[in-house]
Amino acid sequence: MSYDLGKITETLIQGKVDRLTELTQEAIDSNAEPAKILNEGLLPGMDNVGEKWKNGEMFMPEVLRCAKAMSKSMDILRPRLTEGELGSAGTLVIGTVAGDLHDIGKDLVGMMFEGAGYKVINIGIDQPNENFVNAAIEHKPDVLGMSALLTTTMPRMGEVVNSLKEAGIRDQITVMVGGAPVTEEYAQEIGADLYGANASTAVDVTREYFAKAKN
């Protein structure tokens, strides 16, 4: 049996859920490394989808199919990404802030970080501020990610930053924010460390940030 990562990328972009699951399974059966399937098959596809959505070339139903295909494929890969791979780069806790139920973008960000070797703890949607703080205390993540898709719920992100300060753990955690209405400027204003305009730049800026911190 053989596998074709380009085919995986293409099938993901086409949003063919069942076909992608098959191809992922076939690749595994052909001894492809799970990390390779993720990084060279799925992630480039998701990048492409994100790009097309932003430019208005792709519409919501297609994006949803792709997101679903991606998450089904991840379900197959995740248990096979050895502990060493998932978590080697660090831990990310991510969730959507209180009052906000949008999760498509947040979940994509989570999957991209898994692809980058992070252990990802996805705490879900509509999470009260204290849940972010508690998750930060419990899991001691390297990065705490918050997603807000509504301008009405964006302010929760700044509140969480303040609660982290009050809890005395602000400087132990890198706070990253994102979501369609969130801007770099806004991220700075509320005292977040990082802003990611989309899932793959989120990974890039995080990498850069930690690389700089080491030097």
Partner: peptide, 23 residues
């Protein structure tokens, strides 16, 4: 009017259910 045309009848419905699952 939109999802069926783009995704086919079978996936259209399921996609919408998934989209609004949190509500």
């Amino acid at each position: 009017h939109e999802y069926k045309r783009r995704l086919g009848a079978e996936d259209a419905r399921e996609t919408m259910e998934w989209e609004i699952k949190n509500y």
